[in-house]
Design a binder for these strands. Structure first.
Lengths: 212, 212
DNA sequence: TTGCGTCTTCAACAGTTGTTGAATACGATG
DNA sequence: CATCGTATTCAACAACTGTTGAAGACGCAA
């Protein structure tokens, strides 16, 4: 019924389940059942449970990073030799995520939820995010420093943390905003979230990073 | 060596461990060991593991909510009959958290990290946050609508989500900003985080919620 | 066919999990 | 003292965990 290989089915099932319940909240048997596969097969392809977790996390990282980096380079090139606007930088950071969603691929949505889980986790956060995303984030921070030359570095890092937090909670798709708004806002609607997040974040950067 | 009751020691240990590793990442035996207590005692006082988890989560909720609500009421009273400023509302939401930290009580810091874990979790998020915090959040949203009369409700909810996300990631204390900034910013410094978060968030609200 | 490397299944392992019920200690009340 | 309710410990349960090694199935080359 499913055309993909068993190896990919394991990755997909693990992606969905790890995103929903976290590393410790999921058993290999649950993953195997969801993937319609024998328990031992996960071990054959990926080794230990932790290695499977990392494989899921790494699978889509490079594709995502490349799309973001490309968008940033374009924004910088358009504005050169001047600095790009903060808005252009933030757009480059966020818009590629919508494309990921617009493919209609539920896997991408699960992946973003997994990122939210890891990035917000006291245990996994610094352990796993740095390796795959710090280089990219460094480029964005450099661009922001260029766009906000009067700002202290400290202010830029804190503002970026605010951006990262807003994004992370949106990725998590907890459904809380759906309840709070009485159904007016849907936490699965990444496009609407970004449409409101971008001007919000840009205004924050401009106010905090221009006054010192 | 510890003057507190065993029941409280269990709560404290569970708070710290659940915050660090999540519900499924912690065993009752780890909690019992950390609290220097027998395994079965947790079951005697709290029943099932899930009930202990909820007890930890509820323990400090009312105190936190009351402090926030008091701050909001004061801000509203000062401005009455006009609406309070967005800044005053956001301050009322965030400043009580610093007081929690300034007591030097490590338990409060752990509790806030636990909130971050729950609020950002796809599984626990809407399940547990609503019951304890929705009433309070409703009051803050009402105040924000009053302070931003030209805004659509939709915009206010999305902006509040951004605020909530920024706050959540800061609570999580993942140490990632420490690495990114090369030690310039410390994720344990809640006061510095709030000092940058408040103007950031206020600027976001004002821009997004005044243009429609 | 035979062989061979890769993929997949099966059965089982030792260790750990949450949870329980009986037994024991404690501390106040009578 | 004895009594009683609460608090705590002890030992053990059945269920489930990640992981493993051997056995089987598959596809392809010779």
């Amino acid at each position: 019924m499913n055309a993909t290989s068993k190896r990919d089915r394991i990755l997909d099932a693990a992606e969905a389940l790890f995103a929903a319940r976290g590393f410790d909240g999921v058993t290999l048997r649950q993953i195997a059942t969801a993937a319609n596969v024998d328990v031992a097969l996960a071990n054959y392809h990926f080794g230990k449970k932790l290695a499977l977790f990392e494989a899921v996390f790494k699978r889509r990282a490079t594709e995502l990073n490349e799309a973001r980096l490309l968008a940033l380079r374009e924004a910088c090139a358009e504005a050169a030799p001047a600095a790009p606007s903060v808005e252009a930088i933030v757009e480059a950071f966020l818009r590629p995520l919508e494309m990921a969603q617009e493919t209609g691929d539920e896997g991408w949505a699960n992946y973003l939820t997994l990122i939210a889980y890891i990035n917000n986790s006291a245990y996994w956060g610094s352990r796993m995010m740095s390796e795959l995303f710090d280089e990219l984030v460094g480029e964005f921070i450099a661009a922001l420093k260029f766009a906000l030359p009067h700002s202290s570095d400290e202010a830029i890092y804190w503002c970026f943390q605010n951006l990262s937090g807003a994004l992370t909670l949106t990725f998590a798709r907890t459904g809380r905003i759906d309840k709070l708004s009485g159904g007016l806002c849907k936490s699965t609607d990444l496009r609407m979230a970004c449409d409101h997040m971008i001007p919000f974040v840009v205004a924050g950067f401009e106010r905090v990073c221009n006054s010192r």
